[in-house]
């Protein structure tokens, strides 16, 4: 079996597994993925294994086999960790895509995200934080925004560098769930949190996008609301 499989190559195996899945033989397919996982891992065939797990996970998730799909997604993060794979845009986009396909409230999704973010904070360049890479945070924030999970979306936007996306989400959040009197508080909270994370350029982008686009902020600078002027001055003072 081992020799036979070794000669076949990933593509052929994938095809066979895909047929299994199309036929609804999910259990068999899942077990076979796990067998291949242990075999490829011990052989250190990381590239092939990552392709296999990513495609397999997408395949299961798109067939509503959420447990199997999430299991393979978590195995994929294990391989990323074990292989010391580079934290590349491509890898992070794949993780972001798997996250978007998982069920919103499943414990597997939380577990997957925690491990994935932990992996991206390894050997991170220029960010120097332990919260995870801003690009993965952004991707997750956008997914959660689509799901109207504003609270979690905001958390991930704060750890991203997408000030414009954050502001647009916050406007929608404020209008649908906040009180009109909190129009200035929503952006003040966010700007101050970005600043606490030493991310002044994203703080500034978010502030300007929010005050320009929010229908409840009727004038530009100087604003009618003192808190908005305070934020404008604060951001300017930090720049100087």
């Amino acid at each position: 079996m081992a020799n036979k499989l070794r000669g076949q190559g990933v593509e052929r195996v994938m095809k066979k597994l895909q047929v299994n899945i199309e036929l609804g033989q999910y259990y068999e397919a899942h077990q076979m993925y796990r067998t291949l996982y242990f075999r490829y891992l011990s052989q250190k065939k990381y590239e092939e294994l990552m392709t296999l797990l990513y495609d397999g996970s997408v395949l299961f998730l798109s067939h509503n086999q959420h447990n199997s799909g999430s299991d393979l997604a978590i195995l994929l993060v294990n391989v990323l960790n074990e292989s010391g794979a580079a934290v590349s845009d491509d890898n992070m986009d794949k993780l972001g895509n798997l996250f978007s396909m998982m069920l919103p409230d499943s414990p597997e999704r939380t577990n997957f995200l925690t491990n994935a973010l932990k992996w991206t904070s390894k050997n991170i360049d220029g960010y120097g934080n332990s919260f995870g890479h801003p690009r993965l945070h952004q991707s997750v924030a956008l997914t959660l925004w689509k799901e109207k999970n504003y609270q979690q979306s905001r958390y991930h936007f704060i750890h991203s560098t997408d000030g414009d996306g954050c502001a647009t989400m916050l406007i929608e959040y404020h209008i649908t769930k906040g009180y009109p009197s909190e129009v200035d508080l929503f952006i003040a909270q966010t700007v101050l949190q970005y600043l606490c994370l030493k991310n002044k350029s994203t703080a500034s982008t978010a502030f300007h996008a929010y005050t320009e686009k929010h229908p409840g902020v009727t004038s530009g600078f100087p604003f009618l609301l003192p808190l908005l002027n305070f934020l404008q001055f604060l951001l300017q003072a930090i720049e100087r």
Partner: peptide, 28 residues
């Protein structure tokens, strides 16, 4: 900044007390 801050000082004297916060705001 001076005229803007002077005006905002006046405005804040007249500002209504803070109403209770929404859950949406507090969750941040």
């Amino acid at each position: 900044w001076v005229p803007i801050i002077a005006r905002d000082v006046q405005r804040q004297r007249r500002q209504a007390p803070q109403a209770p916060f929404s859950n949406a705001y507090l969750s941040g």
